[in-house]
């Protein structure tokens, strides 16, 4: 094949020959990511999946996971949206530090988050002691699962929401101000509607992260069926005894994660990503 023919055979004239070098190297990474997951799905499907999915302890793990990650996302919506708004709109002293604190859980091993939460909210913790006096104990409760999830998933929501607010054109804000809108009206009628795709993307990302949370949960909330045993914990415990259950749950987790990511792409068209 001579050069002219090859050029003609190329589907897009904008794709130079060198693209194949990049593509073949990139394919290695795609294979590394895809192959283990494909094997996992194949093994799970050939493993009497339905028997395991009917297991009541497995169903309890699934519903607990859905419940806790949904509550976590609700908490983030209430607390994270104002924070993202502040960070997008105003500069203030110490803003760098606030941003650093928000971003840390992204890179921190969740296990460390769990230990930190235990030290803070545990029975002998700085905040845990006063809570204990009024009869509130966080560790080993479903609430502790939510706290752990909010801790690790928070940055994803705050970052995405902040970018969404920041992307609203300043002219629109000024126009609203000229029309006499106060700060709350501006937030309610201009900023939130215009940033809604980003807010939605952030919530979905945070939900997915909370759904897969393991390290912080097992340290801070412990492992108790129906109370704190979410899907990732059930997979971990199952891996030691009943690989079938672990595989079945892994498949559930994988399917839900894939659906969530598809939803994210659909909602997040044109949203700046964190």
């Amino acid at each position: 094949m001579n050069r002219a023919e090859r050029v003609r055979a190329d589907p897009g004239p904008a794709r130079p020959r060198w693209a194949w070098v990049f593509a073949s190297i990139g394919a290695l990474l795609v294979a590394l990511l895809a192959l283990p997951l494909a094997v996992l799905i194949w093994t799970a499907l050939s493993n009497e999946l339905l028997t395991f999915l009917r297991d009541p302890s497995l169903q309890r793990a699934i519903s607990l996971s859905i419940l806790t990650s949904s509550i976590s996302v609700g908490v983030l919506l209430l607390l994270g949206t104002p924070l993202a708004y502040v960070l997008a709109r105003w500069s203030f002293r110490g803003k760098v530090w606030v941003e650093l604190i928000i971003d840390l859980p992204l890179v921190l091993p969740p296990l460390i988050a769990g230990i930190a939460l235990l030290l803070a909210f545990g029975r002998n913790g700085i905040l845990g002691r006063p809570l204990d006096l009024v009869g509130l104990r966080l560790p080993f409760t479903t609430a502790a699962v939510v706290v752990a999830q909010v801790f690790v998933a928070g940055p994803l929501y705050v970052r995405t929401a902040r970018l969404g607010f920041a992307a609203v054109a300043p002219e629109l804000r000024e126009a609203a101000a000229v029309e006499g809108a106060n700060e709350v009206q501006l937030f309610r009628y201009v900023m939130v509607p215009l940033a809604r795709r980003a807010l939605g993307s952030g919530l979905i990302l945070a939900w997915a992260r909370a759904f897969g949370e393991f390290g912080a949960t097992i340290v801070f909330a412990g492992n108790m069926e129906g109370r704190t045993q979410t899907i990732p914990l059930a997979i971990f415990v199952g891996f030691e005894t009943n690989l079938g259950i672990a595989l079945g749950l892994s498949l559930v987790l994988l399917v839900i994660a894939a659906l969530v990511l598809l939803l994210l792409r659909w909602i997040g068209r044109g949203v700046p990503t964190a």
Binding site: G122, F140, A221, G222, E225, V237
Partner: peptide
Amino acid sequence: NVVSQEVGVKPIVSKVSLGEA
């Protein structure tokens, strides 16, 4: 009274030492 079925012996020791259980 079991608040958690821990996945190892050492986590039990750590959490009891902290007074969490």
